[in-house]
């Protein structure tokens, strides 16, 4: 445990000194050019994450939250591509970076945890082979030291008897255990940024709590910045420092977790929070949002939420610009729920 932890502690203290955010995304547009038309999966998205910070990226399916994550890693395949915008990772632009440079960063400085650990782990390779490969791909280290490092990483994410697990194949592990291995691999090279795409959605609540616990503790200890993509606001409420809510390819609201959950400003955030059962009185009807998420093909101009929004009027036919309500609090709405609503 000691070797890995020492280096981790050191890097984190170094990082804390710098005020530059680890990741800055500016006006990112990722579109998919299909026969039916351009799908604006990510449309003018801007956000940033600092070292040691957990950003919760919340939204329903089709809101573009996963594509935002894939864009950062340069994992957009044709017919999709990044149309415009900048992704700066530690000051370096990733949109214009060469494929070799991205290859060098992925799994090394930026890691990703996917929803389904069965997809990310190679079913025909033992856990240790995969972990050692991930280390040796990015640094010169002999096999024995790399294996020790893999052992430490498994121990760090709370896997009992890591020695045995190293020799196991992915199918011999349970879902929760596999996801921990995936998380351990993400942390192997002490990345500056981890993008977690719904890593606990497929897991049971008790296992989800364990994974959240590990992820949170590791980020605090290592100073790794994290983007936690989820559809479950209750998960990010307990985990994230800041929340960004996405709807139809745009971030509609950003702010500190407490502020967004307690005083949501955008009608969509208000609706989304209102439809969570625990926010309602037991047995009462839930405050549902009418309608359904729009198709991203041929999205009407203006605010994408206007058809479902109780506050929509003629103003909403114009695309709302990002307004900074207060420092660190941004919304995209013509009629936000400001304080007069009593919050």
């Amino acid at each position: 445990m000691s070797v890995a932890e020492d280096t981790l502690e050191k890097t984190s203290s170094q990082r804390d000194g710098s005020a530059v955010p680890t990741l800055v995304v500016e006006n990112l547009k990722t579109h998919f050019f299909t026969r039916a038309g351009a799908v604006k999966a990510v449309d003018d998205v801007s956000f940033s994450v600092k070292a040691g910070e957990i950003l919760g990226l919340a939204g329903e399916s089709g809101s573009g939250k996963s594509i935002t994550g894939f864009s950062v890693l340069g994992l957009i395949d044709p017919p999709g591509r990044i149309v415009s915008g900048a992704i700066r990772f530690n000051g370096e632009d990733l949109v214009t970076a060469s494929p070799e440079r991205l290859q060098d960063l992925r799994g090394n400085r930026i890691a990703m945890i996917f929803q389904d650990p069965m997809m990310t782990l190679n079913p025909v390779l033992r856990v240790d082979t995969q972990m050692i490969e991930a280390i040796q791909a990015h640094r010169k280290m002999d096999r024995k030291a790399a294996r020790q490092r893999a052992y430490d990483a498994l121990e760090m994410v709370g896997i009992p008897s890591p020695g045995e697990r190293l020799n196991a194949y992915p199918h011999q592990l349970s879902g929760g255990m596999r996801q921990r291995v995936a998380i351990a691999i993400a942390f192997l090279n002490e990345p500056d940024l981890i993008i977690a795409d719904e890593p606990t959605t497929a897991l049971d609540v008790t296992i989800q709590a364990q994974i959240l616990h590990e992820a949170q503790a590791l980020c605090r200890r290592t100073g790794t910045a994290m983007i936690w993509i989820t559809h479950d606001l209750a998960v990010v409420a307990g985990l994230a420092d800041r929340i960004a809510v996405m709807y139809a390819g745009r971030i509609v609201e950003t702010g500190q977790t407490d502020e967004v959950i307690d005083h949501p400003l955008h009608p969509y955030s208000v609706g989304l929070l209102g439809s969570v059962p625990s926010a309602n009185k037991r047995g009462d009807r839930l405050n549902q949002i009418p309608g359904m998420t729009p198709s991203l093909i041929g999205l009407p101009s203006g605010c994408a939420f206007k058809a479902r929004c109780p506050r929509a009027d003629d103003h909403c036919d114009a695309t709302p610009e990002v307004i900074e309500e207060m420092p660190g609090r941004e919304i995209r709405c013509h009629h936000p729920h400001r304080q007069e609503a009593g919050a």
Binding site: S174, G176, M177, D204, V205, T206, I207, Q208, A209, Q210, L212, H213, Q216, D232, L233, A234, V235, A237, G238, L239, D241, T257, D258, I261, L273, V276, S278, A279
Partner: peptide, 24 residues
């Protein structure tokens, strides 16, 4: 008790997750 305490809730912020050990 364990199951109920581990459900993420909107009103619990920045909590320290204290999971029960092991798996089913």
């Amino acid at each position: 008790q364990a199951l109920l305490s581990e459900v993420p809730r909107l009103d619990q912020r920045k909590r320290d997750f204290q999971p029960i050990k092991g798996e089913i």
